[in-house]
Design a protein around this nucleic acid. Structure first.
Length: 528
RNA sequence: GCGCCUCUAGCUCAAUUUGGCAGAGCAACGGACUCUUAAUCCGCAGGUUCUGGGUUCGAGUCCCAGGGGGCGCACCA
């Protein structure tokens, strides 16, 4: 409270707004017949279709094509040269130059006075300038919208990371490659759906507001449903509802959606992130491995053109089959230390300590094994690997391993040192599942706030009978990071979570035009 | 939550190691120019140096507290 009072927004707002003030040019041609801010504009061509049109490929410098084109976009470069002006117009597809000259362009002086960032629609003959640049000669034009703020340095764009993430709309225009990253993200989602549908999977949508947040180890966000006088939770996983659909007869089902976990931010964690969860009846975790490596490789092929590419300077090969190794094999490989549940809790704790891994008082053998793996080994696994056979203790939803007591049939696919996929042969026995939840309740009682909550409706569903089922969860943001070669998750999320700006800061930046005395007249006139 | 780093004009950055009048490029604004490609040239303007205290004759610079951001740790399947 104290710091809010000190922000004194009213005082700060009296200072001149920091935004770049753009005024109507005062050259004596304020009365205009140029259509400004029309309700619609029909551009028959895109920058790309004009630039790539074979009819213009051999157009000689200084020659006209006799073909009319009509384009719309933002003015991103402007070079005025007396009685001719060149403008680079950028639209979704690319860029095309506009060429205006005093003799042909209506209200040429007004065109010349455009600002960078203005939205313009223009049409005219496609010509090649004397210097060889393919251009649309402006024979009519509209000012579709004005830019009253600029996009930063013409050459270097906007470097400030905070601005880039808070004002993504600016980042998208100011910095090269940003749009491509998000376009790639869209293509990845699209390819995933295509691949899954091609394998007979059906996409569904289950609730995001959950009365009980379960299905993962995580703390939820809490919200309140007024009509029901009840607290609800934003989902931390999609799992339990999807398995109920398997019970309901959806044999191959998936959902791509946002899940929410109330935890810290990091270059690899955003509190809301996109998860793909998928369940397949009659399948086990080995089937899931084949599915994962097949689908991920295919998505890479469709979006990157290859399953081999560089990630953060290192060659990464996603071609199937991926290596399969147990957690214990990998730990031994990495540390030289033999760890197995058969050693017992105390011996495991001793060996963990020699590896510099802290062991909690309540940690069981399984938790210790997992901690050692995560602290010593996971980050070192760069090429894709299926890490298999997790301790039962840390896997309350996975089915007992068919041959190894104390373990479950679970794997994580690790790529570039990070978990990309978590999957298992699903536990289907309702009594066993209830017992697993009971163990989780004990852990919760012992202080583990992330221990999984018991979901009675899910247990009832299992009592109706769930066939053998394989299931997987894929972190979509991390998959996109890999394919887009980004080290920070915020680079692949359009609007990542950031601390909200204080009221004072917004106020100061959005000062009313009136607080600059003497300039209001120009703006008022221009509006008429 | 803890530690380290960081915050200067709309944007990108300067501001001698060791405190001495806060600058440049870009864009913006006014103007010149009939073929530009980060055009060029002339002119003009632009600042609570994140905020609040303190030390000092003097603070962008040093100290304390707070805020935003980055990275690491913790947390986190």
């Amino acid at each position: 409270m104290a710091h809010l009072a000190r922000a004194a927004p009213a005082v700060r707002a009296q200072h001149p707004a920091r935004r770049t003030r753009r005024r109507e040019p005062t050259g004596g041609f304020l009365v205009s017949h140029i259509d400004e801010a029309p309700y619609r504009y029909e551009a028959g061509d895109s920058a790309q279709t004009v630039a790539a049109d074979p009819r213009f490929a051999d157009l000689a410098p200084g020659a006209g094509s006799g073909v009319q084109a009509s384009v719309a976009g933002r003015v991103m470069r402007l070079r005025s040269q007396g009685k001719v002006t060149f403008a680079e117009l950028r639209d979704w597809t690319g860029a095309i130059q506009l060429f205006a000259d005093e003799s042909r362009t209506p209200e040429y002086r007004r065109f010349e006075a455009l600002s960078l960032g203005d939205w313009v629609g223009a049409c005219g003959e496609v010509v090649r300038t004397r210097r060889g640049e393919l251009s649309v000669r402006v024979e009519s034009w509209s000012l579709l919208a004005r830019a009253r703020r600029d996009f930063g340095d013409k050459w270097r764009g906007v470097r400030d990371i905070e601005t880039r993430h808070r004002q993504r709309e600016v980042d998208l225009w100011a910095n090269e490659g940003v749009r491509d990253t998000f376009l790639l993200r869209s293509q990845v989602l699209s390819a995933l759906r295509r691949e899954l549908e091609g394998r007979g999977f059906v996409e569904v949508e289950t609730p995001i507001l959950h009365p009980i947040a379960s299905g993962a180890h995580a703390r939820p966000f809490v919200t309140h449903y007024n009509a029901l006088h009840a607290d609800f939770y934003l989902r931390i996983a999609i799992e339990l509802y999807l398995k109920r659909l398997i019970v309901g007869g959806f044999e191959r089902v998936f959902e791509i959606g946002r899940v929410f976990r109330n935890e810290g931010l990091s270059p690899r964690h955003n509190p809301e992130f996109t998860m793909l969860e998928l369940y397949q009846a009659y399948a086990d975790y080995r089937d899931m491995m084949e599915l994962v490596e097949g689908v991920v490789a295919e998505v890479a092929r469709q979006t990157k053109g290859d399953t081999v590419f560089t990630y953060q300077g290192r060659a990464l090969d996603l071609s199937p089959p991926w290596r399969r190794a147990t957690m214990e094999e990998l730990v031994r490989e990495q540390t030289g230390v033999e760890l197995t549940l058969a050693l017992g809790r105390d011996e495991l704790a001793r060996r963990a300590a020699t590896l510099g891994v802290d062991v909690g008082e309540h940690d069981g053998a399984g938790k210790i094994l997992q901690d050692v793996y995560e602290h010593t080994t996971e980050h070192a696994l760069f090429q894709p690997v299926f890490v298999t056979d997790y301790p039962k203790e840390v896997s309350p939803l996975a089915r007992d391993h068919r041959t190894r007591p104390g373990y479950v049939e679970r794997f994580e696919a690790v790529v570039a040192g990070r978990e990309l996929v978590n999957a298992f042969s699903e536990l289907a026995d309702p009594d066993e599942q209830r017992a697993r939840f009971a163990l989780q309740a004990e852990e919760r009682a012992a202080g583990d706030e992330e221990a999984m909550a018991l979901d009675e409706e899910f247990l009832r569903a299992l009592e109706h009978g769930m066939p053998p089922t394989g299931g997987i969860g894929i972190g979509i943001d991390r998959l996109v990071m890999l394919l887009a070669d980004k080290a920070n998750i915020r680079e692949v999320i359009l609007f990542p979570a950031l601390r909200p700006l204080g009221r004072g800061e917004m106020r100061a930046e959005d000062g009313e035009p009136g607080d600059e005395v003497g300039e209001g007249a120009d703006e008022a006139e221009a509006a008429g």
